[in-house]
Amino acid sequence: MRRVPAPTSRRTRAPGRVVALCGALALLAACGRSVADDGEGGRLPGVPTGVTAAAGSATSVHVMWNALPAASDVGGYEVYRGTTKVKAVPAREHMVDITRLSPSTTYAFTVRARGTDGRLGPRSRQVRATTPTAVAADHSAPSRPLDVRGRAVGSRAVQLSWSRSTDDRGVVSYDVHQGGTKVHSVGGSQTAAVVTGLRPGTSYAFTVRARDAADNLSAAGAAVRLTTAPGSDDGRATAPSSFRAGTHRTDGAYYLDLSWIPPRTDGAVTQYQIQLDGKPATSLVWGGTAPRGKASYSFYLGREAGAGHRVRIRAMLPDGTWGGFSPERSVTTGMPLSTRPGGDAGSPEHPTGR
């Protein structure tokens, strides 16, 4: 299965049906394949996407990736530094700190999923991170993060923010803890985070700590207590925004043109499902760098003018669960860009941030 960096405006003609474009765009749902064939009739776990690596201190790197869907029968993940396995974590986790590294050194990491039967899937794309220079005799911890705030984002996520900490040598990263467990990390230049993978209707307490290059940790900022929405939440807070749909005609055929802003997460959103006329039409996966701002995609509809269709889209979140669907748009081949009833073309745009 081949992936391309940006599946936009791919055009294939096939009369009377939506083309899945399985080979060209890795359209997983249309092809019915979320895991790889091992060549012997069995299935291997898929390739982890959205892999990132960032220095946490002069001797550690924080590696994150997007969890594979639960249906993939993943038993866990393995993280490799070069060709050496350095960490193994259970399937419920999709981030890890790699420690005991050398300062001022660039490291390359990959991630592999391990199936419940113990077999390993293909390696992810390789990512690199460079640890900062160590500072001799640095025993001063950063100041504690102040003004820590947060809000629930639907039933499965929260957004946190805080004021920047100070340090005599500089803050390298911030650690987010849920109770006594570290659940996330962001770079020292960031003062916000999105935590996903939470349970509906559940109360959580989050704290934030700053870390410098010498691995000195600040005291925890004030705890923020948040309760996620109940399970009846429709996930709209995790839906793509500014979703628009239209059609264009090329060589006598009509194509559906979509654009949207990815949902706000701290991980890369690399997979989407497009629903056409109430049924899944295709899933698409970015094999390279997924867009953080406006994304777009086109596919074949048919040759009939005046044909009406309804379309909406949702994203696979970094925790391996589907986000909410965008508002549904109606299009008619040969007609201009669609809007909501009343002329509203969508919610205000906001680029995805880390």
Rank of each mutant, 00 (worst) to 15 (best):
L198I: 01
L21S: 08
G115N: 06
S104V: 02
F206A: 03
D251M: 10
A55E: 06
L284N: 03
A315Y: 08
A108G: 09
G267I: 00
R164I: 02
T265V: 11
T83V: 10
E78F: 14
S218K: 13
A113V: 06
A152G: 06
A113M: 03
K182D: 00
D167E: 06
D234N: 15
L25R: 12
V74I: 13
G16R: 15
G288A: 10
G150H: 00
T181K: 15
R310M: 07
A58E: 02
G41N: 09
G334K: 13
G235C: 07
V96M: 05
W65F: 03
D73L: 14
Y254D: 01
L25S: 04
K294R: 13
I313L: 15
R43Y: 04
T228Q: 01
D38H: 15
Y254C: 04
S189C: 03
G42K: 13
V148I: 10
V61L: 05
S140Y: 08
R33D: 00
A345C: 07
M1W: 12
V127K: 13
A268C: 04
T106L: 05
W162I: 00
G121N: 06
C22G: 04
W260Q: 02
P122L: 09
R43L: 03
D319W: 11
T196S: 11
T332M: 08
D234C: 08
R340H: 06
D167Y: 14
G231Q: 06
A29C: 01
Y300N: 01
A70C: 04
A91I: 14
G46K: 15
R264M: 03
G342I: 14
R92N: 02
P103H: 12
A71S: 13
W65A: 03
S163G: 08
P145Y: 07
L160N: 09
V111Q: 05
V224S: 05
V153F: 10
D38I: 15
A26Y: 13
R112A: 08
S57Q: 07
A157M: 09
S9D: 04
E304V: 15
I313K: 15
A220Y: 10
T166A: 11
G246W: 11
I261E: 02
V74R: 06
E40G: 10
L337R: 15
S155Q: 11
A113K: 13
S165M: 04
V172F: 04
R92F: 01
R236Q: 04
S298N: 05
A20R: 11
S9G: 02
T130Y: 09
S330E: 05
R114T: 11
Y77V: 14
V89S: 03
V153A: 06
S102N: 08
W322I: 14
G201F: 10
Y204K: 06
D251L: 12
G170R: 11
S296I: 02
P69W: 09
T207R: 12
T191V: 00
A192D: 01
P336V: 13
H350Y: 10
Y107F: 13
R156Y: 07
R314P: 02
V135D: 00
V79M: 03
